[in-house]
Nucleic acid binder design. Structure first.
Lengths: 217, 217, 217, 217
DNA sequence: ACGTAAGCGAGACGGTACGTCGCGTCTTACC
DNA sequence: GGTAAGACGCGACGTACCGTCTCGCTTACGT
């Protein structure tokens, strides 16, 4: 409720918005790695030196943008995602995340794929892992995951979290031909099978205390 | 029998070897993204212009190196990995891959993590997906994966292949505290659960016809 | 009786004074060329935008400051500089100039030396030349300087005026180890020898009509 | 016989020559202070980064250029400057200096005037002072300048050396309407009068041992 | 004395130049 | 023919100043 609030200087808010939008557009067009700060500022019609007044480099711009995104998602009222009769319940946190990704599908399709950024992917994976671990603890208590018949819990979580990026990438590369609800259920199924315990719940809440930690870098 | 063969000029082989080794060392030390061509040539004690006589850029060096690696792995005689009694059988192709990775554990730990390269990760994932799909077809025939109770086959494969990088990364970041055989079995379990069909086999063979297609880029 | 008068807003006078003092301090410390507007305003504890409300740039600040200085010198009652018995008479205008320079010796030592400003030096030289020419005319009439045995008058005046800066610089770089009166006499001697006519007078008056023309730039 | 020699890389010599010429042209056009490195490189049709491969900044370019110039002057065979019958002898070193200055008259007119550079002027003056002091010693021995009736020797030398820049500037600003021989004689006269001892000689030699010390800065 | 217009602080912004770094190409000389 | 040495054009980087421009606050002046 300080920096991104509305009491921020109008010019500042405008500049940052323009730069964020330019970043997203250019990422879609030529891949994150190929973007230069000059590209961004030219697209945003902002002076290059102004860029540096707000961000350290393009990675910082991405980070701060993802921070804002995550804060918005976390703060937004969870829209229940009315599960049809007989359907498995939809993981609510995952659902709102997927809805956001769908909104910027082009951007995430690039960023999670080969033209994206390894740090971005890795932070995404760590976020997912943290979320799964949190959920597991919430549902089954601290030592729920222990099971001598299965691979170590940490391995299963690393496996499942990396897998999630694969699932989402598949979705995006097929034009999101299924609804976020549908995908959320599928991912829920797959992650449950990987972790070894059913994770389908509606009461899920983002473990982050509103201000999402640095997403990237 | 052409480029990497022994009939190549001695100086050429020496130069390429020095550059490859320098690439690996530096990747471990500062991450692939942060490496420059100058770094590589200084470490390899090779003139910078000589680098460009062999490679287009550092990505090309990585690609060609990975090509050689994959060719070596594919051509190597599969070492069966004696499964203990009662143990599930060990996926042989995966096993030799893991053994190679273990040999260059530092390098792969970096390349698959946040300091690595998105293209590298993505190509790795695609390789895995191709392997799984090939195996599935080999074991159960063309239409085996269809199952209305599960997510689409493509999704499951994308999920499982991305997951594999997570599993390997976990292994590498924990100092390979388990044997490649142990990990191969676990990954076999998890992938089987994700795909919905048991994939544990010993007859697995790499689908690549010796000369691995461009690994990266 | 307009800008620098006492009826000027107190805050304005305070700001200008702080900026002038900062300029002088910083010039001594790091040379005029190396000073930035930010340096000046930080030293003066004045906001940078306030600087631009009063001056165009650091050159303008210097100019206006020198204008004030010259006005003060010209308006000040000439203090006769009691020539001792038998001593050559002391050039009065030069004397009061030297006294002022002595007061800000550090500043002039820098400004007239290698870390100073070419425009400053040149304007100083032109001032001196104008003064000498005025004196010559006052003492000997319009066509006094003509002498076929000597270099052209203009050359002699250019020579003598440039020389004066050298003499003063020498004085300043030796810690003003001689009194202004002493130096004034010496300079009088040397200039007389250069010009070819004795210039030692007491009735000398600054030819400038009070408001000194732009000293610099 | 090392850097500026003919065995230097042809491209290097070409580049340096282009940059020097651009510097001179631009100095004449807009004054040394107003020149940027970009100006120079655009005029020279050389890439900006190439500039920095040879020089630290425009001051360094000026310095190195002046070094070369002074080396050339010092190494050149002294052209006697046939003094007409009855004429005072011409100071030979000064003469070759004036001839060089005449060749680049526009450049020196700017550099020694208000649009020039204080360091340049000061170094020039110091050079002149050193030359005079050397001459004095050569002609009259170590303690020749002492004379209680005159200002201190150092003052006279500082006076005369600064004066020389004024004389040359006057010459340049009047289109070199007199021959270098004529001006050399006049300057000889004036300096002799200032120093208090006749300095007109033909055997004068530059005290610098061929490789001129940094002229500027 | 007090209301008001000014001076001022704070700081965003568009510009321009800086000096550095990395890239990929090229030439020359050596071996 | 492979290599070392290194000049060069190109272009991005991040920094530093510049001069302009709001926008509120506060403070000295004039009635």
């Amino acid at each position: 409720m300080e920096k991104t609030a509305q009491n921020e200087d109008l010019r500042v808010r405008r500049t940052r918005k323009l730069l964020q939008e330019a970043l997203i557009e250019l990422t879609v067009e030529k891949g994150f790695a190929a973007i230069t700060v000059r590209d961004i500022t030219e697209r945003a019609m902002v002076n290059r030196s102004t860029f540096y007044r707000h961000y350290l480099d393009k990675y910082d711009l991405l980070d701060q943008y993802m921070d804002e995104v995550y804060t918005l998602i976390a703060d937004a009222p969870i829209q229940p995602g009315r599960a049809a009769r007989g359907e498995p319940e939809v993981p609510a946190g995952l659902l709102s995340l997927l809805r956001h990704i769908q909104q910027y599908s082009d951007f995430y399709r690039v960023m999670l794929g080969g033209e994206g950024d390894a740090r971005f992917i890795e932070r995404y994976r760590q976020n997912a892992e943290r979320r799964y671990r949190y959920l597991l603890n919430l549902l089954y208590g601290p030592s729920a995951g222990d099971n001598p018949d299965l691979p170590p819990l940490d391995l299963r979580l690393s496996y499942a979290s990396a897998a999630s990026t694969g699932a989402i990438l598949w979705w995006l590369e097929h034009g999101q031909a299924w609804s976020p609800e549908r995908l959320a259920i599928w991912i829920g199924q797959l992650v449950s099978a990987s972790v070894g315990l059913p994770l389908r719940i509606g009461a899920e809440v983002d473990p982050q205390p509103s201000r999402a930690a640095a997403f990237n870098r």
